[in-house]
Simulated assay, not measured.
Amino acid sequence: MTKNIYLDYNASTPIAPEAVEAMRPFLTQHYGNPSSLHWAGAPAKDAVERARAQVAGLLDCDPTEVVFTSGGSESNNHALKGVFFAHRERGDHIITTAVEHPATLNPCRFLERLGAKVTVLPVDRFGRVDPDEVRQAITPRTILISVMHANNEIGTLQPISEISAIAREAGVLFHSDAAQSVGKIPTGVDLLGVDLLSVAGHKLYAPKGVGALYIREGTRIEPFIHGASHEEGKRAGTENVLLAVALGAACEVAGGWIDAPQVPALRDRFWAGLQEMFGNRVTLNGHPTQRLPNTLSVNFVGRIGTEILGRMPQVAASTGSACHAGSVTLSPVLAAMGVPLDEGMGAVRFSLGRQTTWEELQEVRDLLSMTMAGP
């Protein structure tokens, strides 16, 4: 086999053709500053606001509640730090989980240096947090709960609606990192019940370097970048028109892919084939049903994931463990789930996308058969 096969859509996606076309005029024609009131600025301003409306359409919110950012990491940082700095007089306690992305956990560690108290809740063997444990962790000083919608490694979906109800009852703001779920499953902000929600463009067929933060109307939050009054005063700096229009176009296209059946059908057929081929030598990570429709994280028991992929250089996928000087370390997510080392060291994440075909998955299965047959 000489063809390269891409099964790492949770890491990044190709740019949608519609997003490429949306950017084109802003590479060659419309160069004005969106804040300028003359003829050159008007097309740029209109384009940014149309893009904002497109993002809002996917999130089912008002366009004024969408702030453009440089990506998911900035959105998470803004939500966490912005709430902490804006509400310090009321409290200093933040609740999160052990399986969050580093773009959530590391800002929490930074805020701890500034006096924040952070509770990191455990998860079960499927990677899900117990809403009752969230409720029990709330104190009079709690100002924010941050729980991701879907895990990037294993695809497990968190009980966001249940947690949001608990947060509302306690009068605590609720943030969710939805970088992996936006564009794959419904992420309407009222459906989820969130006050803040993070979007990463390159996970939904927009370019890298652009994202958005949903901030519910009336939510008090400190600006992430201080300066002029861009983005309703929440993020200073001249808007990146080029990337904003690309994100908007990608969000509009993504609306047609929400809960599309073809991707999960391919994933489940691939998983059934692996089970048939390897039996109990392959196990599943994450929740069997409450997970992203495109994500399959499996353990090849007794093998090392990096070595498996190293023998299949044509296949782009990810591992859930790291091998250093002969020793294997599980990812924090698998470790938090209690995955045994002899299983988790063989973790491989296959994440499918719009372009994935059954023929590609068959080729990967055949390659895995040859790889696993070797020493």
Results as ranks from 00 to 15, higher is better:
residue 127 G to M: 01
residue 151 N to T: 01
residue 121 L to C: 09
residue 129 V to Y: 03
residue 66 V to W: 04
residue 60 D to W: 06
residue 48 V to Q: 07
residue 106 N to Q: 15
residue 85 F to I: 01
residue 128 R to W: 00
residue 70 S to I: 08
residue 56 A to Q: 11
residue 106 N to R: 15
residue 98 A to Y: 12
residue 58 L to Y: 03
residue 69 T to N: 11
residue 145 I to D: 08
residue 134 V to H: 13
residue 153 E to I: 10
residue 125 R to T: 11
residue 123 V to E: 02
residue 128 R to Q: 14
residue 118 V to Y: 03
residue 114 L to F: 13
residue 118 V to R: 04
residue 140 P to Q: 14
residue 105 L to S: 15
residue 138 I to M: 09
residue 154 I to W: 06
residue 127 G to R: 02
residue 145 I to M: 11
residue 130 D to R: 14
residue 99 V to W: 05
residue 81 K to L: 08
residue 79 A to E: 08
residue 158 Q to A: 03
residue 70 S to F: 05
residue 99 V to A: 05
residue 151 N to I: 03
residue 121 L to V: 13
residue 134 V to E: 12
residue 78 H to D: 07
residue 147 V to G: 03
residue 95 I to T: 05
residue 88 R to M: 07
residue 47 A to Q: 07
residue 68 F to V: 09
residue 83 V to A: 14
residue 80 L to A: 06
residue 96 T to L: 10
residue 53 A to M: 06
residue 79 A to C: 09
residue 110 F to Q: 12
residue 85 F to K: 10
residue 101 H to D: 14
residue 59 L to S: 03
residue 132 D to N: 13
residue 115 G to H: 06
residue 83 V to M: 11
residue 58 L to W: 07
residue 49 E to S: 03
residue 113 R to E: 09
residue 148 M to D: 00
residue 49 E to V: 03
residue 95 I to L: 06
residue 108 C to P: 06
residue 98 A to G: 07
residue 67 V to Y: 06
residue 90 R to C: 00
residue 135 R to H: 11
residue 125 R to K: 11
residue 117 K to Q: 10
residue 141 R to T: 07
residue 140 P to A: 14
residue 145 I to R: 11
residue 126 F to M: 04
residue 92 D to Y: 14
residue 59 L to M: 02
residue 150 A to G: 09
residue 56 A to G: 09
residue 106 N to S: 14
residue 96 T to S: 15
residue 93 H to S: 13
residue 91 G to N: 03
residue 101 H to T: 15
residue 63 P to I: 04
residue 140 P to D: 13
residue 78 H to T: 12
residue 148 M to S: 13
residue 100 E to D: 12
residue 98 A to E: 15
residue 108 C to D: 05
residue 60 D to M: 10
residue 79 A to Q: 08
residue 65 E to H: 08
residue 102 P to D: 10
residue 111 L to Y: 03
residue 58 L to T: 01
residue 146 S to G: 06
residue 102 P to W: 07
residue 62 D to C: 05
residue 105 L to F: 09
